[in-house]
Structure formats: structure tokens, C-alpha cells
Write a protein that binds this DNA or RNA. Structure first.
Lengths: 339, 339
DNA sequence: ACGCTTACTGTAAACGCTTACGTCATCATA
DNA sequence: TATGATGACGTAAGCGTTTACAGTAAGCGT
């Protein structure tokens, strides 16, 4: 019984196949022609020795990591799996591997040992990287794509996100036009949340477009969270502020709104119409079913990878990709069921 | 304007700090003592040059990748985010990076270029790797941990999963003992699905323990899928087979069962009690709220990483870790609300 | 028959780190 | 004072690939 056999290297393969390591490398990577018979011998040798190239060595020698990094703050939320799914699929389709980093919620200026030479490019989700860090990386020409984050002035990094504003505007317009609502509450997401900011803009523009005033008392915090949203709504109720509809910011908040409204004996949608954003699974199961906006999250991931690949390959990229959102009309806005 | 400055290497740092590369390496990795002043000089040089070690070079030279691989078939399903969350957190806590692989659903004997020398260890989710592949890797002493997969005979790979059988047994026993149900349908998950097999075992044992016969006609396919489950149940109904409860295999199936039952005018839980497994978010929102079993999925991920680390470090590991499940009693089994 | 391509293949120099060893002070001990 | 020990570095040999570059043989047109 020999001691644990050291695992084979390209040299062993070369020796067994009776060729040089260069040739072995060539058949592995298909980088240049090799006589079929020779190639076959090499392939056999690889199989026999169960040779697996050390990617570290490949990376070091070739100066390309074949790896994409995905950096985000938190693995949570209903849409995360979709995002990852898209990213993963596209990454694989492009022949890359996926390295996942998470960073603490508050993007301090940590030295970010990641990135740079250890991935060929980085996908940055929302504000998981500080502006500083972003600028530094971007300045060195390192391929970077932002997801769900819009231009911080003068930053030339491609970004892909969804049409938050447009979706929100259509949603609110629907409330106004089809259901005659005029005093519409808006529940903000967490402070500094990009998506929320754009949805709010859509909300305001929809009101403006219909000549409705914006009552700032109707805009309060939902935090994209059921509990917070419920509490905020209750406060509104108690304060006796009048409203006939709620745009909850996202679906989770909408659930909280449902709770608070039901607890207060207000009927949905007769007394108050409620709409959300995201179209989580729950949306079509609660009573009444929730009118909301569907966003192509998976496609965001996919598209971001595509842009990143173009960047890596030196092809021209889209500075800003806005993926269209889709209104999902259900019952909670006042529309009849089964539509 | 110079051409793009080549990014600095450890040599540049050494030169700037007036030390050898060995010393730089030492301060970077803290592998041996360095006089504080010297260390500081090195650190300054690193900062000034914005030096970032090439991990490929580190890996190649040190023979350790500091990377854990997670291999799975599909990024989907309600519990996936939890799993990943646990894995990611534990991975980071252990000082490793996370590489994610997905493989096509059918684990053919693909050459699996992953693993081996490109990660320090692999987390394998369910049957994403063929038994062959598993044996091969395991035989070379490569650190491997299985998640949601139980022993295939003679395979000495640590596994961590949840107490499916126990959970199912308690669930079914509850149906029998507290609600006097005797003809209980069981909806199987996809063929070959480990979790499902164990749940079925729990179902059978619960029946046996209460002296109830197993009517094979009551066991049919739910496929862990709403539509399939609904169709299966409808078939049962049409065939006029009598039953007073349904253990749906998982919560998604339970939703399908709800639909089918309501469509058929049967009331839940009066006519038919329904229970699921997983405790997805939806479970507490549907009407009636769903009695189910909660599994510590995140903890599975965490624990798997812990075991993997022990394996890598050559410490003794637990051959099988079964994480306890918890009964979540709600209304759909017949228990009063608000319990 | 002669040069000129063309098609393969081998040689060997990187790639950027880590680390076993060796060296040289320094210092406590005998 | 001689003797190890110990601590702080430097030297240089890898780690396992890729890839210029060069070499060789065969094919081709004239």
C-alpha cells in the first residue's frame, strides 16, 4: 500500500501520452490544432489518470479567472432566489464560475480584498459597495455592473434594474383612473433604498399627471416590512387622516396593510384599495388577491451578467438597462375577481 | 500618460518597504513574527500601492484554496434561500469563500471538473452528484458533506439533514390522536426524493403505531407541486375513494389540495383535515391556516459547513446529523384558531 | 528540385505567491 | 567565555499551468 498518491499533474499526463505538456494543454483548452490521434491519446491519458487541471495554476498562467463575483449585502427577501437564479444561469452559460460574497449591511470602506485579480468581473447588488470602492475599482478599468442601483453622478458603470418608476406610476394611475381614488397613501421602503425612491417618484408623477395634490402626511414609512407597514398604517388610522387607497411600496408591506385595515374594520377594496409591488407568491393567495407589479428579477440577473461579459470582452455596453415591469391587476384595487 | 500600469505584485511591495517578499507574505498572512516596525512599513507599502494578493498565486503556492464549493441542482423552492443563507454565513465565519455550482437535474456521470483541487471541500445538496462521482471523490479522501441525503450504503460521507421521518410521524399521529382521523391520504414527492421517502416512512409508522392499516390507494403522487397535487386529489375524489385527512407531503402540495377540496365543495378541516410540511410563508396566510412542520433549513446549511470544516481540519465528524423538526399546529388539522 | 507555406509539436519562460532552509544577531545559560 | 536557543529576516525553490517562440516535416506551385 503506497502512501496517498499525489494527484496527477499535466506533466504526468504528458508523459503517459508521450507528448509535451504544451500539447496536453492544447487539447484541454482547444487553443490550437492537434492531430486527432494525438488528441485522443491525451484524452485517454487524462481519463486514466483522472487528471483534473488545477484551476489556480490555470488562472495564474493565463491571467484570467473565469470567475464572476456577485456581491450583496444579504441573502434574504422574496426576490433573492430569482435574482440568483438568473445570475447563476447566465454565468454558467457564459462559461464562468460564480463566487458569492456578502458584506455587512453598512458598506464601510473595507479594503475589499475581493474583486480585482480574483474575479474577471463583479456584479454589485444595490449598495453593497461604497461609492469610494466603486470608484476605485471603476478607475482601474475593472469590469463592474450594478444591479438595482442607479447612477451616482459621474460614475461610468453599467447598471441594470427594473422600471420602478414606470411601474409605480401605472399602478397609481390605475387607482386613480379606474377606481377614482384620490387620497392615496404611499409607504416608503428603507431609507436610501433605490427601488423605493423610484417608486415614490412614480407615485408623485402619477398624482401630478392627474392634477392631484401630494399630501405629505400620506407618505410614511413601510420599510418593505409587514410589521412596520402595519404599524404605520395604524398610526394613520388613529390620527384620523383620511385616505381611500394605499400603495404599499412592496408586497410585504401590503400584507401588513391588509392586517391593519382588517383589524380596523375597513374593507378592502371597498373602503380602501391596496396595491403592492413585486408580485410575491403570497399575492395571489391572500384575500382579496393583491394587485401589484411584477418585475423580471431573474432577467435582471441574466442581463447584468450579459453586460458584464461584454465589458470583460471589451465590447460596448448599455450604460443603463431598464427592464419593463408589468401591472398585475387582481382584486385588492377594486377590480372584479377572475380577471 | 503611461500605458495602463500593471498592477503591483508582492515584489513591488517588498521593494518599496525594503524587505524581502517572504516578509511581506508573513505580514499578510501572519504566519510568523515580524518586528512591528517592519510590519508597519510593509502595511504602508501595501496601502500605497493598493496591493491585492492574487489569490490564484496564493492558492497555487500554498495548496489550499480557502474555498468551499456548494453543488446543487436547482436554485428554486421556498427553502433554498434559507439553505444558502446558512451555508454562506457559516462559510464566511469559517474564513472561506463560497463557490456555487449547479448541475443539470439528472446527475449524469459528467467529468465534474469542479471539486478536487479547486475547492477545499464540497457541500453536496441532495442528489446533485451521482453515486459514482461521490465514491470517486470520497475514495481520494476529498472532504465532502451531504445535505438532505441519507446514507447510500457503504458511503462514508457525513450527512446532515432534517428529521423528516420523526416530523411526519408526529404530524400524522396528531391527525389520528387529536382529530380521530383514520383514512389519511399521503402525497408523495418527486420520485427518488429523499425527504419524501422519509416522510412516507414516518406516515406508515404512525399508522402502524396506532394499529391502522395502510391503504395503498391513499398513497399517490403530489410531486411537491401544487398542480400535480391538486390533480391527484381530484382523481381520488372522482374515484370515490373515502378519506378524512390529507398529509400533503409538503406545503406546496397542500395548497393544491386546498384548491381541489374547495372546488369539490369539501370543507377543511371539517370534512377533510389537511397538513403539509415545510412551513412556507404562505402557510400562515391561507384559509384555513395550514398545520405543518417547520424544519431548520438554515441550520442545515450552517451545520453542514461546520462538519465540512472539521473534515478539512482532520477532526472527527458526525456521520449523520439529524436536525429536529417542529410541529406547527394551525387550523387546517382541525385545531381551533389562535392556538 | 526548390523555396514557401502550413500544420503540428516541443522548449522553456513566465505567472505571483508561499515556505523550507539558512544566516546572522542577540541573549540567557553554564 | 563558549554554547546553544531563539527571533527576525532573506534566498530561492517550487506550485501546475499557459503560451511565445522555435523547430520540423509535409505539401504545393513552378
Amino acid at each position: 500500500m503506497r502512501p496517498v498518491a499525489k494527484s496527477p499533474t499535466i506533466i504526468d499526463v504528458a508523459r503517459l501520452a508521450g507528448v509535451s505538456t504544451a500539447t496536453v494543454s492544447r487539447v484541454i483548452n482547444g487553443t490550437s490544432a492537434v492531430v486527432p490521434e494525438t488528441a485522443e491519446r491525451v484524452r485517454l491519458a487524462i481519463q486514466e489518470l483522472r487528471f483534473v487541471p488545477r484551476s489556480a495554476a490555470q488562472v495564474l498562467a493565463s491571467r484570467k479567472t473565469n470567475t464572476l463575483g456577485l456581491i450583496l449585502t444579504e441573502i434574504r427577501g422574496a426576490f433573492f432566489p430569482h435574482l440568483l437564479r438568473g445570475v447563476e444561469a447566465a454565468t454558467r452559460a457564459a462559461g464562468y464560475q460564480l463566487l458569492i460574497y456578502t458584506v455587512s449591511d453598512i458598506p464601510a470602506d473595507r479594503p475589499t480584498l475581493l474583486g480585482e485579480h480574483n474575479t474577471d468581473g463583479l456584479l454589485v447588488f444595490t449598495s453593497s459597495l461604497s461609492l469610494n470602492e466603486l470608484q476605485r475599482l471603476s478607475a482601474t478599468g475593472f469590469p463592474l455592473v450594478l444591479m438595482h442601483q442607479t447612477p451616482s453622478d459621474g460614475l461610468e458603470i453599467p447598471m441594470v434594474t427594473i422600471e420602478n418608476k414606470d411601474g409605480a406610476e401605472r399602478l397609481v394611475s390605475h387607482l386613480i383612473e379606474s377606481h377614482g381614488r384620490r387620497r392615496i397613501v404611499f409607504l416608503r421602503g428603507p431609507a436610501g433604498h433605490e427601488d423605493s425612491a423610484w417608486r415614490e417618484r412614480g407615485y408623485r408623477e402619477a398624482l401630478a399627471a392627474h392634477g392631484l395634490p401630494v399630501d405629505e402626511r400620506l407618505i410614511t414609512l413601510g420599510d418593505f416590512d409587514e410589521v412596520t407597514a402595519g404599524a404605520s398604517l395604524q398610526r394613520l388610522l388613529q390620527a384620523g387622516i383620511d385616505f381611500d387607497a394605499v400603495f404599499a411600496g412592496d408586497d410585504d408591506s401590503a400584507i401588513g396593510v391588509f392586517r391593519a385595515l382588517k383589524a380596523a374594520g375597513r374593507s378592502i377594496p371597498q373602503d380602501v384599495a391596496v396595491v403592492g409591488f413585486d408580485d410575491v407568491q403570497l399575492a395571489s393567495y391572500i384575500t382579496p388577491t393583491l394587485t401589484t407589479v411584477r418585475a423580471p428579477i431573474e432577467e435582471v440577473g441574466r442581463e447584468a451578467v450579459r453586460q458584464l461579459k461584454r465589458l470583460i470582452d471589451g465590447q460596448p455596453v448599455e450604460p443603463l438597462t431598464l427592464l419593463p415591469t408589468e401591472l398585475v391587476i387582481r382584486e385588492s384595487c377594486g377590480c372584479p375577481a377572475g380577471h
